[in-house]
C-alpha cells in the first residue's frame, strides 16, 4: 500500500483532484489493453483500476458489461489478465488496483489471489459484490490486510448512517462513494442530495474519498472536487476507444483526459 498511500498524500497536498481511470484487462484484447493502460497513465491518471472480466458483471452498466463480454469472447483468462496487470504495474510508479467480482477471487482461492496480487505490485482491490458482512466464510478482508492490499470499501447514496459507520471501520486506502443510485455508465446530475450524501460520508471517516459512477464531464468534476479527492471515470473513457482502431483510440483517450483533467 506504500505506492497508494504516497499517491493519496500527493493528491491531498496538491489541492487538486486525482483521477482514477477504469479499464478492462483484455479489452479489446490483452496486447491492446496494455497499450491503453500506458496511454491512460501517460495522460494524467493518478490511479488505474484494471478490471478482470467476469461473465456476470451485475454492478456494471452496458458499456463496461459489453467490454467484459467481448474480452471473454476473445478468450481472456484470469491468468492472462494478471500477467498484463503485472506488466502495467512494473511500468509505473502510480498505484494499480484490481477491480473484479468475488467469484473470480473465490475460484482462484482468496488467500492465493491476495498473495499473487501483492506479488505483481497491485496496491488494492475493488470487489463490488463483496459487502463486509460476508467476511466470515471468505476472509477477503483478512487476506487483503495480510498482504498489504487496500480492500476499497464502497458506499452508496442509499447507504444509511449506521451502515456507513460500519463500512468505514473496514476501509483502507480510500472510500469509494457512488455518486447516485445506479449502475455505472449513465451520466449523473449532481444535486444537493449528492452533496449532502458526500458530506455525511466525509463526517464519518478521515480517509480520502473517491467519487464515481456516471462521471464524464469537467463540469461534474468542478462541482464535486470540494467534496472528494479522487474522481473515478469508467464507461465514459471506454466509450472513447470502443470499436475504433487502436491508434485512433489512444489519441481519443489522450484528448478526452486532457479535456477532463486540466481543472
Amino acid at each position: 500500500m506504500k505506492k497508494l498511500n504516497s499517491q493519496l498524500d500527493r493528491i491531498q497536498s496538491s489541492g487538486k483532484p486525482g483521477f482514477m481511470m477504469h479499464m478492462v484487462a483484455g479489452y479489446p484484447d490483452l496486447k491492446r489493453s496494455e497499450k491503453i493502460a500506458t496511454q491512460i497513465l501517460e495522460s494524467g491518471a493518478a490511479l488505474l483500476e484494471v478490471q478482470i472480466p467476469f461473465s456476470d458483471p451485475v454492478a456494471d452498466g452496458p458499456v463496461i458489461a459489453r467490454a467484459n463480454e467481448l474480452a471473454l469472447k476473445n478468450g481472456v483468462t484470469v491468468e492472462g489478465s494478471l500477467l498484463v496487470i503485472e506488466r502495467i504495474a512494473a511500468s509505473t510508479e502510480k498505484p494499480i488496483l484490481i477491480m473484479t467480482y468475488f467469484n473470480i477471487i473465490q475460484n482462484y482461492g482468496v488467500e492465493q489471489f491476495c498473495k499473487r496480487a501483492a506479488e505483481i505490485g497491485v496496491q488494492g482491490l475493488i470487489v463490488p459484490d463483496y459487502p463486509y458482512d460476508e467476511e466470515q466464510d471468505n476472509s477477503l478482508i483478512k487476506y487483503s490486510h495480510e498482504n498489504d492490499l487496500a480492500l476499497i470499501q464502497v458506499i452508496a447514496s442509499t447507504s444509511r448512517a449506521d451502515r456507513i459507520n460500519e463500512i468505514v471501520k473496514h476501509a483502507s486506502g480510500f472510500i469509494y462513494c457512488m455518486a447516485r443510485t445506479g449502475i455505472t455508465g449513465r451520466k449523473t446530475d449532481i444535486n444537493l442530495q449528492t452533496i449532502k450524501y458526500l458530506e455525511s460520508v466525509r463526517a464519518s471517516s478521515d480517509l480520502p474519498m473517491a467519487v464515481g459512477f456516471g462521471l464524464s464531464e469537467r463540469s461534474q468534476v468542478q462541482e464535486l472536487k470540494n467534496y472528494a479527492q479522487i474522481m473515478v471515470v469508467g464507461s465514459a473513457l471506454i466509450k472513447e476507444y470502443a470499436d475504433i482502431p487502436i491508434d485512433k483510440g489512444l489519441q481519443q483517450i489522450k484528448k478526452f483526459m486532457i479535456g477532463l483533467i486540466d481543472v
Binding site: 463490488p128 459487502p131 442509499t158
Partner: peptide, 8 residues
Amino acid sequence: YVPEVLVP
C-alpha cells in the same frame, strides 16, 4: 453478495 446500493 450484492453491490452496496442494494444492501438497504
